[in-house]
Design a protein around this nucleic acid. Structure first.
Lengths: 347, 347
DNA sequence: ATGAAAGCGCTAACAA
DNA sequence: TTGTTAGCGCTTTCAT
């Protein structure tokens, strides 16, 4: 069963050469005769040799692994990010170590620690905490860090993200153009830059059209950290919050949500109170989740290119691995407003 | 910037003891004086010591890493699997190395190879290929393998999955009870055990109620491997296939789909031809994706506990790590039929 | 073109 | 209780 793995030494012994010769033959170095290279290669594959990257890394000083820290794979944005990062890592021959923080600072810290212990060559992360301290554990020992989607300006590291501010601002303009006069923003209650930017964009959008806070209102939906890992909680929670809310007051004529799950839940809650979407209330989301196109009404949303975020984040990390000194880069990937039935006034 | 990392030797030198003493002090071994332990610990944290797991693994023979091989993170089942596996790994203090095979055998093989090179202690995998060969690369050198959702009986390794056969059989019984007389199965065209089991269950369900193949028909929707990583393709593809299909022939009175995305796309295609769901056609899915409850009509589905699959798979792997000799286990997790509007006859 | 020796950071075995 | 030695598997000098 658990037979000892073949090492360079085994090949060397079997061939009557030194381990060193085997090493260089397999590395394809030019200072070794072609004949020997061939003999070694053949014997290696005959014995089923697999290089031990642990030993190799110990010598070379880099492990060939990249840490990826995300908050929640059940969020389509982040599952696509994983896909993009994995594909880019594969292309580069790097191994991907995954940390799931579950939107929890403690778990994130433990994850950072374990990445340090694992000697990852670089890290790309969607941070939970704004506190730069824990992340400096990485940058402090020279591990390149690339932040994705949520920036921490104090860290001054590479960043790839989307312009949540402008996206939401434009979404407000859209619903205003559709005749909305009373608009609510619906967001998670996370204290993270992406949510903050969208809320700023929300108020800026209102101001742009001469509206002010009285016609705009924030609904913050509490994040359920625990359940979120097993199942996205947002739609159900938005539905429940909506039911309670609409019992007390009339809904506005537009609700711009921070993600499509919220839109989903609110549409259902609204319908239970006899409101129609979009006739009575316009609804928009963010993320363009794969089902949004197929709802009735289809959900207006902002497409966030999660795959690109992951792939580009990985590329930035690999690039910095090659050149540590290059200036910090800040890359924004394009979003796309996809206007669908849920936000198009029928009047 | 990239300052050299602190090693045991640094602490030893700074304290005037041997590296070995430091090692054992930090390991909390009993053969070291409490006073020394305290001194060492304090100095270690003062210097910001982080153990090097590469070196540790090289000595100990196990890396503390578990490989997780999935086909596609954009599939909610597998994104939840990742979450479950990650959480279980975290609890056990293990590091998770992620491989995304993209439903591609070549990519999967490369992934297996890189897991070998990485010296993972164990692997849990949703296999693409039925060919046991590549997987024996792992089992052959004593790396415990746990298969999830898709079994490869020839390998005779630990398995955790769901009973796709019985689930689909029961789903057929359900639509028949709702009055369906002509039923189509809609599946991916993947040659994997899960799909095969559902199709067997489909025909068994028909046979159970005295129906035979003429009233049952298979629609196989081609898997789009490339696009699938960036975005789930199933709903769009099912929609497109549906449009073409219904142009040629009338739909049956029930369609049982292999996943909720297909159900989504087909409902839309049906509606474009003026058919109503569930009045004219009953539709069911598999997976109970997070939006299915919120569609109108809500989609009947089979809940697959992805998080549990991942967590249990990881637990099986860890358990085998502790005891290599224990008998192979085959664990089935419960599914749940969630009957919603899309499959409830209104007559 | 090849071999011998040293060492990456750590732990286990054996001394003292 | 602590230090010394050896070695995990590999690569990089430096000889030969």
């Amino acid at each position: 069963m658990a037979q000892r793995r073949i090492t360079l030494k085994d090949i060397a012994a079997s061939l009557g050469v030194s381990a060193n010769t085997v090493s260089r033959a397999l590395a394809g170095r030019s200072d070794i005769s072609v004949a020997t290279q061939e003999r070694v290669r053949k014997e290696a594959s005959r014995l089923g040799y697999v290089p031990n990257s642990l030993a190799r890394s110990l010598v070379s000083g880099n492990s060939g692994t990249i840490g990826v820290v995300i908050t929640n794979p059940s969020n389509p944005l982040y599952s696509q990010l994983i896909a993009g990062a994995a594909e880019a890592a594969r292309e580069a021959g790097k191994t991907l170590i995954l940390i799931v923080s579950a939107e929890d600072a403690k778990t994130e810290n433990d994850g950072i620690e374990s990445l340090l212990v694992s000697s990852v060559d670089a890290v790309i992360a969607v941070p939970v905490q704004i506190d730069p301290g824990p992340w400096r554990r990485l940058t402090g020992v020279g591990v390149p860090l690339v932040l994705v989607n949520r920036d921490i300006p104090q860290l001054a590291v590479d960043f790839v993200g989307v312009d949540h501010f402008a996206s939401m601002q434009r979404m407000v303009e859209h619903v205003v153009a559709q005749g909305a006069e009373s608009i609510w923003a619906v967001e998670e209650d996370l204290d993270v830059p992406s949510v903050a930017s969208r809320l700023e964009g929300f108020y800026q959008g209102l101001a742009d059209v001469g509206m002010s806070r009285p016609v705009g209102k924030e609904i913050r939906i509490p994040t359920r950290r625990v359940r979120s890992l097993a199942q996205p909680w947002q739609a159900e929670e938005a539905y429940a919050v909506g039911l309670e809310l609409f019992k007390l007051e009339e809904p506005p004529d537009a609700m711009v949500c921070g993600n499509d799950f919220f839109a989903l839940g609110l549409v259902k809650a609204l319908q239970e109170y006899g409101y129609r979407v979009p006739e009575d209330v316009l609804i928009t989301g963010v993320g363009d989740h794969p089902y949004s196109h197929f709802m009735s009404p289809a959900i207006t949303s902002i497409r966030l290119p999660g795959y690109e975020l992951g792939a580009e984040g990985m590329r930035l990390a690999l690039s910095r691995l090659r050149d540590t000194q290059q200036p910090k880069r800040r890359k924004m990937v394009e979003t796309e407003h996809i206007i669908r039935g849920s936000s198009v006034s029928s009047t």
